[in-house]
């Protein structure tokens, strides 16, 4: 690796990590329903993980874009990072990247100032994730020859499968949602069972607890 190729490699590497992170962010976002749960993580912590990973993904995307611009092998104007189809090189695929980045920025900025926004507006903008991620994936596969075969292609397909499964889960969970008024009672009953189980280990015998 020489000085001239360092930016290129950095751009490729951060691009792939960014794709994996964005996939994770999208899946976590899909899991944030009232029933979403990851093993070992409280339900409501999924939100925090989603938020932190999305900020990390943006950092990777930023490095990915900057290193691509700084790389001198092909000329990519900085403007083309945010203005779609402004690059002479790989006009279509880099244009998709710019679209995806713009949508991402809209989501990040509205989320950072969510407290000052109309809730409906925030949600409408956040739904752009379902456009942004497929566009980013198309950008990745289209602009990178080695993502079109071998283990890298398997990885891209793996991302698509995981996202599809998460979408199916989301739609299915929407179908079996507990009515609002019963939700708290539902959750409390679950925790009461857990508390009773704890009580059997600390103090009472199992027989007493069963009665």
């Amino acid at each position: 690796m020489t000085g001239t190729t360092a930016f290129w490699y950095a751009s490729r590497a951060t691009g792939i990590v960014a794709l994996l992170l964005l996939t994770a962010v999208l899946v976590l976002g899909l899991l944030i329903t009232r029933r979403g749960k990851l093993p070992g993580l409280p339900r409501f912590a999924v939100t925090g993980l989603h938020r932190n990973l999305s900020l990390l993904a943006v950092a990777f995307v930023a490095v990915h874009v900057l290193t691509a611009v700084l790389d001198t092998y092909v000329h990519i104007p900085l403007l083309s990072a945010v203005v779609p189809f402004a690059s002479g090189y790989e006009r279509l695929w880099l244009g998709l990247g710019a679209i995806s980045l713009d949508l991402m920025l809209a989501m990040i900025i509205t989320s950072l100032v969510r407290g000052h926004l109309n809730r409906v507006l925030w949600r409408a903008i956040h739904l752009l994730a379902y456009v942004s991620w497929p566009v980013a994936l198309a950008h990745s596969i289209g602009s990178s020859k080695d993502l079109q075969h071998g283990p890298m292609l398997d990885m891209a397909i793996g991302c698509m499968v995981i996202v599809s499964l998460a979408v199916i889960w989301r739609l299915a969970s929407a179908a079996r949602q507990v009515p609002r008024a019963g939700r708290v009672a539902d959750v409390m009953a679950r925790h009461d069972t857990a508390t009773r189980y704890t009580a059997t280990r600390y103090g009472r015998t199992r027989e007493e607890a069963r009665r």
Binding site: R34, F44, T47, A181, R183, V184, R190
Partner: peptide
Amino acid sequence: SAGQCGPCFNGLPR
């Protein structure tokens, strides 16, 4: 809890 926001109605019972 009004049972509307996940962090509230999942978190507070916990």
